[in-house]
Simulated assay, not measured.
Amino acid sequence: MKRVHVVAAVIRGNASRILIAKRADDQHQGGLWEFPGGKVEAGEAVEAALARELSEELGIVPTAAQPLIQIMHDYPDKQILLDVWDVTAFQGEPHGAEGQPLMWVTNRQLLEYQFPAANKPIVAAARLPEHYLITPEGLDTGELLRGIKRAVDGGVRLIQLRAPEMFDPQYRDLALDAVGLCAGRAQLMLKGPLEWLSDFPATGWHLTSKQLRQLASGERPIPVERWLAASCHSAEELLLAQQLGVDFVTLSPLLATQTHPDAQPLGWQHAEALLATAQLPVYLLGGVGPEDFSQARQLGAQGVAGIRAFWPQ
């Protein structure tokens, strides 16, 4: 069965809202919501297909767009490659040119709509930011909390509270304070025993690669309304993350780092090959900073994650 190449757009409007459209009942996966787009014709460039589809379906012309994520999905009756682009500017006023209902929704509201199964990682990618801040080791509680506040004030939207040198009670107390700093402004991801999950209902959870391997054969340990992430270092671990239903991962180390000086770096070329197999959003981690975002996105990553390069001084 030939894989159908489809281009789709995450179109961003005012107040960080995202445009979605409802599929006609007589279409494949009819009655479900989708990100606007359509089939790439033979010999057609993907960007040209994106512009054509958005003009035909919505009456708009994209003026700023970049790759977001590629997903391969096999339905019982069809195999597709979804080539998803982030459209951050456009000309015209979107309307359902083919009679399809449209909705502008917030990140959180995306979870309230039913999408085709292939769209699950796209919904995650649409909701996630470009950068993932991981807190550094060796700081006392006061320094960590002041840094988190500066980061949130500076617009950071995704933070992992990583403090492996702390005793469990210390970490839990720190997490409670960090939850308050991030409330309504940034998504906080915690690390630690899964027995703590119910104590921090507002946070997501970032699994270590060891936890990922332990859990991979079972069910997702956290409700779909909460973010679940994992640390991956290989194609095998990326596959385990997909099997568990993880929302996003970090892939590391991309380059040599001070944090893990003995770890063998993946390098950009190997990372690109791994990203091509990943069916979920991936942050590249290790020796990268905000200036590497464009290259990471072009290779298929959601963005870049980091400790020192992202920590506000």
Rank of each mutant, 00 (worst) to 15 (best):
L240K: 11
A301E: 02
V246A: 09
L266I: 04
F35W: 07
D25T: 08
R220A: 12
L266S: 03
D173W: 12
L110M: 10
D83F: 11
A64H: 07
E291W: 05
A301D: 01
V123S: 00
Y75A: 08
H5L: 13
V46D: 13
R297A: 08
R127H: 01
G306Y: 02
F248V: 03
L228K: 13
L32G: 05
P62M: 11
L181R: 07
A65C: 00
V304T: 06
P312W: 09
E219S: 14
E225S: 15
I71P: 00
Q242K: 12
E57W: 14
H206D: 09
V105P: 04
T63M: 04
P312K: 01
A202L: 09
L158Y: 14
E195G: 10
V10E: 09
D168L: 14
L275K: 04
A256G: 04
L207D: 09
G287T: 10
A186I: 05
F35E: 06
V152K: 03
M1N: 12
S252D: 02
Q114N: 10
S198C: 07
P62F: 04
V249M: 01
E272T: 15
F167H: 13
N107G: 09
T63G: 00
T63I: 12
P36E: 02
Q91Y: 08
L238P: 13
A117H: 07
Y171F: 11
R108W: 13
A186H: 07
L174H: 06
P67E: 00
L144M: 01
T203L: 08
V40Y: 03
I71V: 15
A51N: 02
G306N: 09
K191T: 14
P193M: 15
P76Y: 08
Q279M: 15
Q269D: 12
K78W: 06
I134D: 03
F167M: 11
E237N: 04
F115T: 13
P101Q: 07
Q66E: 14
L194F: 11
R226D: 12
G155Y: 01
A241Y: 11
S198L: 12
G303L: 04
V179I: 14
P129V: 01
R308G: 03
L133A: 00
A49G: 03
I18M: 10
A183R: 10
L239M: 08
V224L: 14
E41V: 05
V288Q: 02
I20C: 07
Q79M: 05
T141N: 01
